[in-house]
């Protein structure tokens, strides 16, 4: 039987339906798993995404031809039956299920299996072949449970506020920032946001997602006007002159990479909170098992290690080369995850 999906230098391609999934080169028809910029790119003829992903794509990509689809809704494209299912990565994010002549393949996009209180929770989808990310595909990555994480962040913020310090927290503008917003305790102090995050907040609020009150940190907002504030900013803004107006401050990053002491120290932040919108080691393994798939393709992350591990577990596992970045501390908006 012909493969349901193939891997080309433009992206993941479905010959039966003549469409691409999360392509990185211009194509006619693109199905998009979620709005991060390494998955939803400019230059496609037309797009299909979930109703939850559409607003942020329009916000980021401007005038595009975009159709929307609800989770679980089935649509026929050429000879392929296509549906979108929650990936738990960020609000609106989806795994894309493609069925051709009874053979089912699923593209995970980016995903995580634990509920974050904001994104639609991950739903395992039965399939024959599963195309998975493995950004954190090593057994050293195990995420802090959400309740402990919340407690850690609140404690850090409250301690700083009591000592007259601003708390500056680096987190991705789409997803991570809002996830943190819904977990912190807004009674501790005012919450200020960097423009990149506030813009995304507005998009999400407009589509009906409830977030605590935030104040866009314009130039006139300082440590004097908002003492004891929590400032949310993209990782790239930390350590720049932008943060100076907040006076004495404690800085922190919220990322899966913070599990590694060396990475945390190299970023020279005061604190590192271990939190990611990608699956950790157990999450990846559980998710794969739940699909019932026998054939696995690893797209980005520790692919070769993860492939070997899966092969030893009895899967028919492969590495495919893509242009997705996963979670990175090293780049800014251009490749957030």
């Amino acid at each position: 039987m012909a493969d349901v999906l193939t891997f080309t230098d433009r992206g993941i391609y479905c010959p039966a339906g003549d469409f691409h999934i999360d392509p990185w080169q211009p194509v006619d028809r693109a199905l998009i798993t979620h709005g991060h910029s390494d998955h939803a790119r400019l230059g496609m003829g037309r797009y299909l995404a979930t109703t939850g992903t559409a607003p942020v794509m329009r916000h980021r990509l401007g005038e595009i031809t975009l159709d929307t689809i609800n989770y679980g809704e089935e649509t026929q494209i050429g000879d392929a039956k296509v549906s979108f299912h929650p990936a738990g990565h960020v609000p609106g994010s989806a795994q894309i299920r493609v069925e051709v002549k009874g053979e089912v393949w699923v593209v995970s996009g980016d995903y995580k299996t634990v509920a974050d209180g904001l994104s639609e929770p991950f739903e395992p989808v039965k399939c024959h072949a599963f195309i998975t990310e493995c950004t954190f595909g090593l057994p050293i990555f195990k995420w802090t449970p959400q309740d402990i994480l919340t407690q850690q962040i609140n404690e850090w913020w409250a301690t700083n506020a009591a000592a007259g310090r601003t708390s500056i927290l680096g987190a991705y503008a789409l997803g991570k920032a809002q996830r943190l917003l819904t977990t912190v305790n807004p009674d501790i102090g005012p919450i200020l946001t960097h423009g990149a995050i506030e813009n995304t907040n507005e998009v999400l609020r407009n589509q009906g997602i409830t977030l605590p009150q935030t104040t866009y940190a314009t130039a006139d907002i300082t440590a004097q006007t908002h003492p004891g504030a929590l400032v949310l900013a993209p990782p790239s803004a930390l350590g720049t002159t932008w943060t100076r107006r907040f006076g004495p401050a404690s800085t922190a990053f919220a990322s899966g990479w913070m599990a590694l002491r060396g990475v945390r120290r190299r970023r020279a932040a005061d604190r590192g909170f271990i939190v990611s919108d990608h699956a950790d080691w157990d999450g990846l393994n559980d998710a794969i098992k739940a699909t019932g798939a026998t054939k696995i393709f690893a797209t980005h992350g520790y692919t070769s290690v993860f492939q070997r591990w899966l092969t030893e577990q009895g899967y028919d596992a492969h590495v495919v080369s893509t242009d997705y970045h996963g979670e990175s501390l090293e780049t800014s908006e251009a490749s957030e995850a």
Binding site: L138, P139, I140, K142, A259, L260, R261, Y302, V305
Partner: peptide
């Protein structure tokens, strides 16, 4: 796989703890 993990972490004690 332990060795791969160790080479990423760069510290044996940390790898073990993780």
């Amino acid at each position: 796989l332990f060795e791969e993990s160790y080479s990423i972490v760069g510290d044996l004690a940390e790898t073990i703890a993780l």
